[in-house]
C-alpha cells in the first residue's frame, strides 16, 4: 500500500478542519435563523431552498469529519472509547437511516443471530462507521434486488464449564461481531478491487459514494478503523450479480 496515499498529514488536516468549520458555521447558522423565520417569513419555495442548504452544510461537515477520522485511524491514533452499547439497536438504526436512499426496487433486510448479546463493551462509533460505510457502498451499486445484513458472533458467548474453571476472567472476552453485507448489485471491477480499501488510488475514484454519505473515504475508513481495533474487513466475493463483504470487530461483553 502506498504510504503517501494512506498517511495523510494530521496536523495539516486538523488545521484545514478548523479553518473550514468557521465559514460552514456562518452558513449553517445563518441558514438555521432563516428557517426559524428570524429574517421574516419564508414561502414554501424559500423553505425548500433553505432546507437544501441545511442538508449540504451537514454533508460538508461530515466530509471534514471523515477526512479527520481517516487520518487518525490510518495512523493508529483514533481515540477509542470503551463504553457499553447495544449492537442490535445500532445496526438496525444504521440500516433504517439509509432506507430513504434506497432505489424503489431494492429491499434492505437485517438479520441478527440470537447469540448476539444485547450489550457489548467497546467503541460503538467504530461499529457505526464501519456498518455505514458498507451499507453506503452497497446502496451505491445496487439498483435492484436486495441488500442483506447478517450479524453473528464468531464464538459462543457462553463459556464451557471447563473454560469457566480454567480462566473465568477471560471466558467472555473478545467474542466480537461478524457482519456480512451482501448485495445484488453490479459487482466490483477487477481493476478497482485491488484499490478497494485505499483512498485516492486511481481505481477507488470511480466508487462515487451516495451523495449524503460524505466523500469516497467510506471503505478506506472502515478498513483503517477495523485494523486499529484488531478487526478486519474483506471483500469475500464479487461478480456482476453482487458483492459480499465481511466485517469482523472484536468486542467484549
Amino acid at each position: 500500500m502506498n504510504e503517501t496515499h494512506t498517511r495523510l498529514p494530521i496536523a495539516l488536516l486538523r488545521q484545514l478542519s478548523h479553518d473550514l468549520r468557521s465559514p460552514i458555521n456562518a452558513i449553517s447558522g445563518t441558514n438555521a435563523l432563516l428557517l426559524e423565520g428570524g429574517y421574516g417569513e419564508l414561502n414554501e419555495k424559500q423553505t425548500r431552498a433553505m432546507q437544501r442548504i441545511e442538508r449540504n452544510s451537514k454533508r460538508a461537515l461530515l466530509i471534514i469529519d471523515q477526512f479527520m477520522t481517516y487520518a487518525r485511524a490510518s495512523a493508529g491514533q483514533y481515540d477509542l472509547v470503551k463504553a457499553p452499547f447495544e449492537p442490535r439497536t445500532l445496526i438496525t438504526g444504521s440500516a433504517d437511516a439509509l432506507r430513504s436512499l434506497l432505489p424503489a426496487d431494492v429491499k434492505l433486510t437485517v438479520s441478527i443471530a440470537e447469540a448476539v448479546p444485547q450489550t457489548l463493551m467497546g467503541d460503538a462509533a467504530v461499529l457505526a462507521r464501519c456498518v455505514d460505510a458498507l451499507l453506503c457502498n452497497a446502496v451505491a451499486f445496487t439498483a435492484a434486488g436486495s441488500i442483506c445484513v447478517a450479524v453473528s458472533v464468531p464464538h459462543p458467548l457462553t463459556p464451557s464449564p471447563q473454560a469457566e474453571k480454567e480462566n473465568a476472567a477471560e471466558a467472555t472476552e473478545n467474542t466480537g461481531l461478524v457482519i456480512d453485507v451482501t448485495d445484488t448489485g453490479t459487482g466490483i471491477d477487477a481493476e478497482i478491487e485491488a484499490a478497494l480499501f485505499t483512498p485516492f488510488a486511481p481505481g477507488a475514484q470511480t466508487l462515487t459514494p451516495v451523495p449524503s454519505s460524505g466523500c469516497g473515504l467510506g471503505l478506506a475508513l472502515c478498513h483503517a478503523l477495523a485494523m486499529q481495533i484488531g478487526g478486519s474487513v474483506e471483500l469475500v466475493s464479487t461478480s456482476d450479480s453482487g458483492s459480499h463483504f465481511r466485517l469482523r470487530l472484536p468486542y467484549s461483553q
Binding site: 419555495k45 425548500r48 431552498a49 437544501r52 442538508r55 449540504n56 462515487t208 451523495p211
Partner: peptide, 12 residues
C-alpha cells in the same frame, strides 16, 4: 446528476 439537491438548485 446523481446529487438530487444539486439538480434542484440547477433546475431552479
Amino acid at each position: 446528476d446523481d446529487d438530487a439537491d444539486l439538480c434542484e438548485t440547477y433546475r431552479d
